[in-house]
């Protein structure tokens, strides 16, 4: 697989030399490949937000390097600027960053700054608004007239329209109800399939991470604690709980069954998997 983003020996210390000095990211090595869908999880203060802000040069490493396609993004100003377009960062509650007069202008803001042709901007805005399910008649409305869920879609379309090589989404489902979460989940998957963009999806939820990603990276205390497939990560569910992560209830149930001597694998995270496994166990007595 082709490497697209790499951080080498990255350390970031906030407020160095003051009483508030804090090393948020501590000697981290991490590589993302083209087209990968990575779930990045960790509890508050684990360093994941600090880490992702290095990906497009918003933060400068205290130590270590950030490379996009093998090039150090801090070697000169042009590279740093290029990194901003190569890596799209969607912050938590991105709807608070909407500012334009119309939805169209807001989504077009990024592509316009990239210096694209008018026709290309137009195509990108319309195409990506369609992906996030915004009807055409919304495009000329003020984004501030829309509902919270619709604003979130506008904000996502704005980043989609920049067609970055790597897209980092920080808790894109936060604060949405279950139906809203499912919608956002679908848009991101659809965009990923269509463009083959590398997606780094930051979440607290093991469940979302497992459903969406082929690879999960777990951060704790500024370091990478685990890196593997969902099955590999869930097999260490007890360590995840110890790191303060939200392990799905069924996984916790299976951990407890295991402690009671029932031969089950804790690497389940959906009710369907769990029910199928228990039925099989009851019928045939086979371990799952």
């Amino acid at each position: 697989m082709n490497e697209v983003l790499r951080v080498e020996n990255l350390t970031h210390t906030y407020s160095p030399g003051t009483p508030f000095e804090k090393t948020a990211v501590d000697h981290v090595d991490f590589t993302a490949h083209r087209g990968e869908f990575i779930g990045l999880i960790g509890h508050t203060g684990s360093g994941k937000s600090t880490l992702i802000q290095h990906f497009n040069g918003l933060l400068t490493p205290t130590q270590g390097r950030v490379l996009i396609n093998g090039e150090d993004i801090h070697q000169n100003k042009d590279m740093t600027r290029a990194a901003r377009f190569a890596v799209g960062l969607v912050f938590q509650y991105p709807e608070y960053q909407l500012f334009e007069e119309t939805v169209f202008k807001d989504v077009a803001f990024g592509p316009k700054n990239m210096g694209l042709e008018k026709a290309e901007i137009d195509r990108r805005v319309r195409e990506n608004c369609r992906i996030v399910g915004l009807p055409d008649d919304v495009l000329e409305k003020s984004p501030f007239e829309l509902s919270g869920g619709q604003k979130r879609r506008v904000a996502l379309a704005g980043i989609f329209a920049m067609e970055p090589e790597v897209m980092v989404l920080d808790e894109p489902m936060a604060g949405l109800d279950p139906a809203g979460c499912a919608d956002v989940f679908r848009f991101i998957s659809e965009y990923h399939q269509k463009h083959g963009t590398t997606i780094i999806f930051v979440t607290h939820s093991m469940e979302y991470a497992a459903q969406m990603s082929q690879r999960i990276v777990v951060m704790d205390h500024g370091k990478i604690l685990m890196d593997g497939t969902p099955a590999q990560i869930f097999a260490r569910a007890d360590e995840l709980l110890a790191a303060g992560l939200d392990v799905p209830q069924v996984t916790q149930v299976f951990l407890e069954l295991g402690r009671r001597g029932i031969p089950v694998d804790p690497a389940v995270y959906t009710v369907e998997q769990a029910a199928a496994c228990l039925r099989a166990l009851k019928e045939g007595g086979a371990a799952c």
């Binding site: 509890h43 508050t44 604060g175 303060g244 992560l245 939200d246």
Partner: peptide, 10 residues
């Protein structure tokens, strides 16, 4: 929804 933005331990 005071916890919508919080992580599990928070």
């Amino acid at each position: 929804e005071p916890t919508a933005m919080l992580d599990p331990s928070g």
